[in-house]
Write a protein that binds this DNA or RNA. Structure first.
Lengths: 462, 462
DNA sequence: CTATTTGTCCGTGAACATTTC
DNA sequence: GGAAATGTTCACGGACAAATA
């Protein structure tokens, strides 16, 4: 019997005692999930401490621990020792970003890749179809890529500073697919991965799906803070870290070379597996003066480096490269076979042809011009923070005051005919004060449409 | 203190007491995993009962329960209440089947799809490249497939008896990819899925990777036994069932229509999610007289139907169709976005063009002739059980005596220049007495090579 | 058919670590 | 800087269920 009556005691969540069935911990978890998903408990709400709820329900407190744990694994809540347990941001809805088929909105949400350049691909496909070995591009051979395709891939990545050989490379179906492969190959449910506080929302969802816990690490203008990472590693058992050093998505922050070395030191010390995704390397290497090298070079044995040709060459062919240390080889290959069997050699050959013929470089040049203009248009509308983040990013990170409710803001914008995403979608952990909008610059049908979209946005925010 | 000295007592596994560290359960699990993976404990070995090992180690028996549970989740062991705990078949090695790049063996292992027909695809690619809307095949739009592509897919599956609409269909990257999507979308680590005792080995590996437990159900010549399924469902909490009714891989068993209805009844009763993979529907519908319909028709609301064009049309384009009940829609789409983002519309368009132009039917006709001849060649060499299983299967299931050690047999065959797989690879549960070889008939470079391979095999086995 | 063997499930309590005040 | 609040970890034991002898 509980000693006190809790009727007058403030408790943010009071499950119905009569609804409890055995096993209690599952029953409690279900009730909590229900109440969160149905909006009775808002993001950020502090739940009753384990011992208090246990008292209320007349159970041992570790039974509550287990109930909370289930919900935490589902990404619904998060707990901080000493502080309490809270409802997670994005708990009640999926934040996966994908193309919205309905409505003819001006797309500033999903980051595409200036699809205007796709016409340039046609010739290369023609070349591939006419190749003497065309039929061999349509079978089950070479599941990680045909040697000459891998050679072209190495050639392509050489300019970003990647030096490795064909044994440590596989061709997969895009960056997202590479992440799914890396996560299933190298992590288990319950494992923890450190990420920037704001990170790629599809990575957040992917982790949730595979029951991998994200540990948010704060950062500054040069990227993630090594001290914070070290602190968290000492506190809990962290297995990996996910970074986008050449241009964080969504914040556009580029990690300085000095910071890369500091972070690499912490990663080495704690033997983390580094997943390094370089969506913007082709827009960084040789352009941004501070860019020296990928972190893969600093930690070649413990890094999975992901390079995707979707943003740089052609998104619709779904080709990405995954580079890994020797220790990961077997597990990665296993996972590729399990998830894809293989990526089409035909598609890989088209990308290969584009690279070898020089067409890929032409496309990149064109995209550079487009992204330069798009950024100019953006800064005409929002002339703040011009020196923050990557100068040629495909998207921008706009601080906003007011408009704090994420869903409301996004819905408002849709009513005005534009789609853009609130910063809450990209949160890997607790909610900070500052709010932002991620504005994709590369997804409108034309630069004129981008102008219109940004003007509407500007008017709305003022 | 343990009461007895176990030094003289027969215990199949005695972990080193001094090697134990806290937490004990993890330490024990690691030791056990090590000893299994290094071959100190052979498949099928009975481990000490929980209470006995606990006594030996001077621990509570539930601590052993937890250690065993970890290894069971990793697919290393399996436990039967009342009987004991045993080392799993295939515990010490991966059984994923993929193309072996090394050595020029005669391929009777991996099931390809008579790749001789791939030349016929060329014209259709040409057609696609010349289409007016070619550029729109290279962007992020329509992540589940462009409407007319879906219409063609429905058209294609109509002949197998699938009647549904575009809302319940998505285009993915092959059957294996579809399975990965279905498993991650609809199941959680720890869930159980019923399968035939012998089932698709890559499905076994995929389940292992996602920590999903397989529950083997025995069957007869008409397929899985409904009584056995019902019994297992009553015993443990089973969430789903995986079936290949039109032609089981590897046994070639076709489920009779009567049996489909019986099994469907059990599935409905226990509210299982049915994953139905139809690799051979195009070789069954309209050819085999008993074929009436897929099980999807019997359970449209709780089935995931997977149809792959790799075997029937062209493997190298990696296109599969996934059909699902309304309740699964959201989760399946979410998983597609997370794992693939999308499947290339360009590849999907080529398959669409093949279907709409009638080329696909030509290819199927050609494959039918090839598979007929291949089966004739097989039965010339092994004139037994001619009426067992699917008459036009791409592979056959050959009973073998002696040669019981799987690895040894496969290695022996490789030395003779052929690759084929022992039945142990396809086992989802405990090891039965009977042994088989799965012989792929569709993967050699020519039918002549198949003849040579089967002759060598025949000589070896006699 | 009953007793025994064996695995499963789940609530408990002690020891501990971190954060907050 | 120490006490209180709060979450984490893990070994334990009782009740139960299934298979076997």
């Amino acid at each position: 019997m509980p000693v006190n009556s809790f009727d007058n005691y403030p408790m943010s969540w009071k499950p119905d005692k009569n609804a409890l069935k055995r096993p209690y911990y599952q029953s409690i978890a279900s009730l909590l999930e229900h109440d969160i998903k149905n909006g009775f408990l808002a993001s950020g709400t502090k739940l009753p401490p384990q011992r208090e709820l246990a008292d209320f329900l007349d159970l041992n407190f570790t039974t509550i621990t287990r109930a909370y744990k289930i919900c935490e694994e589902r990404g619904l809540i998060y707990a901080i020792t000493g502080s309490g347990t809270f409802v997670a941001p994005n708990a009640s809805r999926s934040i996966t970003i994908s193309k919205d088929k309905t409505a003819s909105l001006i797309e500033l949400g999903l980051v595409s890749s200036f699809e205007q350049t796709n016409a340039l691909v046609k010739d290369s496909i023609q070349q591939v179809v006419n190749k003497s070995y065309f039929e061999q591009l349509l079978d089950y051979n070479d599941p990680t890529g045909i040697p000459h395709q891998k050679a072209a891939a190495l050639n392509w990545m050489e300019s970003f500073g990647i030096h490795t050989d064909q044994e440590h490379l596989a061709i997969v179906s895009g960056a997202q697919n590479a992440l799914a492969i890396a996560l299933t190959a190298l992590f288990e449910p319950g494992n923890r991965i450190a990420t920037d506080l704001y990170t790629y929302s599809n990575f957040i969802e992917l982790s949730k799906m595979f029951r991998i816990q994200l540990v948010p690490i704060t950062g500054d203008e040069f990227g993630m803070l090594p001290g914070e990472l070290d602190k968290q590693c000492n506190k809990v058992n962290i297995h990996g870290i996910f970074l986008m050093p050449s241009c964080n998505n969504p914040t556009t922050i580029m990690m300085s070379d000095f910071r890369k070395r500091e972070i690499a030191e912490v990663i080495r010390k704690h033997r983390l597996i580094l997943i390094e995704e370089e969506i913007h390397a082709f827009m960084t290497a040789g352009i941004v003066s501070d860019y020296q090298q990928p972190m893969f070079n600093l930690l070649p044995e413990q890094t999975i480096y992901i390079c995707c040709t979707s943003k740089s060459i052609c998104s619709g062919l779904r080709i990405g490269y995954i580079v890994y240390g020797k220790a990961f080889c077997e597990k990665i290959l296993q996972s590729i076979f399990n998830i894809n069997v293989k990526t089409s050699s035909f598609n890989a050959e088209i990308i290969t042809e584009l690279i070898l013929s020089g067409k890929a470089h032409e496309i990149v040049l064109l995209k550079k011009q487009l992204v330069q203009t798009a950024n100019d248009i953006y800064f005409n509308n929002f002339p703040f923070d011009k020196n923050v983040g990557h100068p040629l990013s495909f998207y921008r990170w706009l601080p906003i005051q007011r408009h704090s409710d994420a869903l409301e803001l996004e819905t408002d914008l849709q009513k005005l005919g534009i789609r853009a995403f609130h910063s809450d979608r990209f949160l890997s952990g607790q909610t900070p004060q500052d709010k932002y909008l991620r504005i994709a610059l590369s997804s409108t049908n034309s630069l004129d449409e981008l102008k219109v979209g940004l003007r509407i946005l500007n008017e709305y925010l003022n």
